[in-house]
């Protein structure tokens, strides 16, 4: 069996991956993002006023493990602001997500800091369940850049 196996050889033209940091295109605002089909996730396209600022704040929150905004990742299912109370419905990619508390806390802090928001209420929802199809086209590009095949 082992005689059949050919050990892979180094390709002389190959170079090691030089990426150590991944920059998002800073000029792109959230509302230019293409949303995926269906009601969720939401991307905040067309939001105005304080809700627009909340979306912008959410767009700046990145997944703890990959250089992608949680909005592009498709985690945000809905945002509404009423009388200074911002309600955010979000999901997680995985029920056993070890970064759960950290991510929810970061969302809460980012949204609370938005001008016009007094309190932020974050609800974690599971329906419909997140799948990789919920990542926006821009998000997929970020993930490809990171080396994932999506």
């Amino acid at each position: 069996m082992s005689s059949e196996y050919e050990r892979p050889e180094r390709d002389d033209d190959a170079t090691a991956c030089a990426y150590t940091s991944y920059d998002n295109d800073e000029d792109v605002e959230y509302d230019e993002k293409e949303s995926v089909d269906g009601e969720v996730p939401a991307t905040g396209r067309g939001a105005e006023g304080v809700e627009r600022r909340v979306w912008q704040a959410l767009y700046e929150v990145e997944d703890p493990e990959m250089p992608i905004s949680i909005v592009d990742l498709g985690l945000i299912y809905g945002v509404s602001v009423e009388d200074g109370v911002a309600a955010v419905d979000m999901t997680l990619t995985y029920t056993g997500c070890p970064a759960r508390d950290m991510l929810i806390n970061e969302v809460k802090q980012s949204v609370s800091a938005v001008e016009g928001v007094d309190t932020a209420e974050i609800a974690v929802v599971w329906s419909p369940g997140w799948t990789v199809d919920m990542v926006t086209e821009q998000g997929k590009e970020s993930l490809r850049e990171f080396g994932l095949s999506v």
Partner: peptide, 11 residues
């Protein structure tokens, strides 16, 4: 309960 089943089944 119903809302959580899909995600769990997927995993």
């Amino acid at each position: 309960i119903r809302d959580r089943v899909g995600k769990v089944l997927g995993e």
